[in-house]
């Protein structure tokens, strides 16, 4: 019996004794090259930036950017699907080297992860709503049910400013389905994606519109660990990011993935290639 008891104690102790160790990363580029793979956190549920094809591969505009970076470093790519809730966590834990996952560049997030500038995309906030809802201005959302997606940066701002009753879903399809099912009068989302959805030719959206003026233009950024931001790794990504703007690569990718070209990218392209 004694041996069983010690066994139990040992097993329980194992759980308690697991100490948190966070890897220190002195030189990320060397680490990536030594590994032969760059590990990147991406979205796999946000069409057309990162989504699945039937073979299980993740594809999309952000994945194309990842491929560019991997090509530059001469390494293979490992994509780790992340969610808004865990992408910064994974990066800081060292599970990923980089995160390109539709991440909005906010002041609060800048304290947690390093945001690469220039940003690779800018979106703004709007809602998708049935024409019958007759929405005219943002204030009309007050106390009405509005569907949204977990972890989206605009949820908080819209809630504070216009006090809708936000119903939050884990992913876009769930929220769209709730909108069609009449569980909410509008779906709070990125404006370029709403345009893409409406222009998609699906009969389901015939009675829907994007009724409000887009607000809160928000830059999207590639994230690196804060320690990497001013280190060679961060600098390399920054240089590549400038190149993408200058060469029109980002505009080209936007077209490829059927995203309505965003004014931000056009402007950046002019600014950077003109000088």
């Amino acid at each position: 019996m004694k041996s069983i008891l010690t066994g139990i104690m040992a097993a329980l102790g194992l759980f308690a004794g697991v100490a948190t160790t966070i890897a220190q990363t002195p030189d990320t580029i060397a680490q990536i090259k030594q590994r032969g793979t760059i590990v990147v956190g991406v979205k796999n549920d946000y069409k057309p930036w990162g989504f699945l094809d039937p073979s299980g591969k993740i594809v999309g505009m952000e994945i194309d950017l990842v491929d560019e970076i991997a090509k530059k470093l001469g390494v293979k790519v490992e994509l780790i699907p992340v969610t808004a809730a865990n992408r910064m966590e994974f990066l800081n834990q060292g599970r990923t080297d980089l995160v390109i996952a539709t991440m909005g560049d906010t002041e609060a997030r800048r304290k947690v992860v390093g945001m690469i500038e220039p940003n690779y995309y800018a979106g703004a906030t709007n809602v998708l709503a049935p024409k019958s809802a007759n929405l005219k201005k943002w204030e009309d959302l007050k106390d009405r049910k509005v569907c949204a997606v977990q972890g989206a940066y605009y949820n908080r701002r819209v809630t504070q400013l216009y006090q809708p009753e936000l119903i939050v879903f884990p992913a876009v399809p769930d929220a769209l389905n709730a909108l069609i099912g009449g569980n909410c009068i509008a779906f709070l989302f990125d404006d370029t994606l709403i345009v893409s959805t409406l222009a998609g030719g699906d009969q389901k959206w015939a009675g829907y519109e994007m009724p409000l003026t887009s607000e809160d233009p928000q830059l999207w950024a590639i994230g690196v660990r804060l320690t990497d931001l001013d280190a060679p790794f961060g600098k390399l990504i920054k240089e590549m990011s400038v190149d993408w703007h200058k060469s029109g690569k980002l505009l080209e990718l936007e077209k490829k993935w059927g995203i309505k070209s965003s004014p931000y990218l056009v402007e950046q392209n002019k600014k950077l290639s003109g000088s």
Binding site: N44, D45, Y46, K47, F51, L52, D53, P54, G56, P81, P170, A171, V172, P173, D174, L176, N177, I180, T197, G200, D202, K204
Partner: peptide, 16 residues
């Protein structure tokens, strides 16, 4: 997760 991914990729609410 993969089912949800399939739904996103298809972008069709009738598949839900």
């Amino acid at each position: 997760t993969l089912t949800r991914g399939a739904l996103v990729a298809e972008a069709r609410t009738d598949l839900y």
